[in-house]
């Protein structure tokens, strides 16, 4: 099958305002309520002029002539993905161009099968570009949310002057542990704190790799001139650590966050005393 030079499709695209009007009409149906007619009209009109220009280079959407058009579609689907459009809605808007082209071909009396096929194939290719960038944009949104979630679930908090802590909750994987640890160490620098506490009361289990990361963090903190205490080790985790043969060596561990805080405060020269007369 020979590669069409796109002459007839180009002619159809240029056949006047009718194509644009029909496109907007056809696209409006699946997008009902999502966009105003005005906004949809502007988007279609901008896209149409980019496409008309691109068809000068033929109908192969992978060529350089389509760089601008691909960029436009990528931008569009990213925007719509963020605004919560479904993949069907986004792709339908592009596929609606087909209706407009078929109608135009019919009217011009040039509605032969070859033209219709060519136009159809071309719009399909554009639809695929749109769909792909839509999927990519959604993935990006998901990974951004995952990052935000990580940010939310691992707050590094200041407990006392010179004492920061990170209460870890939920299952730890290697990647998450690493990010948390980097954040904790950076906080030591930013706040000038000499004590860090990693509280793992909310962690149901650790594997070898996670235990190693915890250990490495303690050693890294020491290299920076700070002391790091691990608190809240559950019996099962203590079992794991022993069974795995991981050496915790001279690392300070405390059973609760409160004990760890007391230990850290004593380290900074603070003594906690109960006032006489109180319980």
């Amino acid at each position: 099958m020979t590669q069409a030079d796109g002459g007839r499709v180009r002619a159809l695209l240029r056949s006047g305002d009718k194509v644009l009007r029909r496109w907007v009409e056809a696209a409006e149906e699946p997008l009902r309520g999502r966009l105003t007619t005005g906004e949809l009209g502007r988007t279609c009109s901008d896209l149409l002029s980019v496409l008309v220009e691109a068809t000068d280079g033929g109908l192969d959407v992978r060529t350089d002539a389509y760089a601008g058009a691909r960029g436009f579609l990528t931008e569009l689907s990213r925007d719509w993905a963020r605004r919560g459009f479904s993949p069907t809605e986004t792709a339908s808007a592009v596929f609606a161009l087909k209706d407009a082209l078929f109608a135009a071909a019919d009217e011009d009396g040039d509605g032969d099968l070859a033209t219709v096929l060519e136009a159809s194939r071309w719009v399909d290719a554009l639809g695929l570009v749109t769909f792909e960038s839509f999927a990519r944009a959604r993935e990006q949104v998901i990974s951004e949310q995952a990052e935000q979630l990580l940010e939310l679930t691992t707050p590094v908090v200041k407990l006392w002057e010179g004492v920061v802590a990170v209460p870890l909750i939920g299952t730890l994987d290697s990647a998450r542990t690493q990010i948390v640890m980097e954040k904790l160490l950076q906080t030591l620098v930013d706040t000038g704190s000499e004590h860090a506490i990693i509280d793992i009361t909310g962690v149901p289990a650790v594997d070898t790799e996670v235990a190693q990361h915890l250990l490495k963090t303690v050693v890294a903190a020491r290299l920076m001139g700070a002391e790091c205490t691990i608190s809240g080790i559950r019996p099962q985790i203590a079992q794991t650590i022993v069974t795995l043969g991981i050496e915790f060596g001279d690392i300070t561990t405390k059973s609760t966050l409160a004990d760890a805080l007391l230990h850290a405060m004593r380290g900074t020269g603070v003594e906690v005393v109960r006032r006489a007369g109180s319980r």
Partner: peptide, 17 residues
């Protein structure tokens, strides 16, 4: 004094304490 966190993490990974 003043070892950066990234440097400390790398040294530990390298096996240098």
């Amino acid at each position: 004094v003043g070892m950066r966190p990234a440097v400390a993490i790398t040294l530990v990974e390298l096996g240098l304490s």
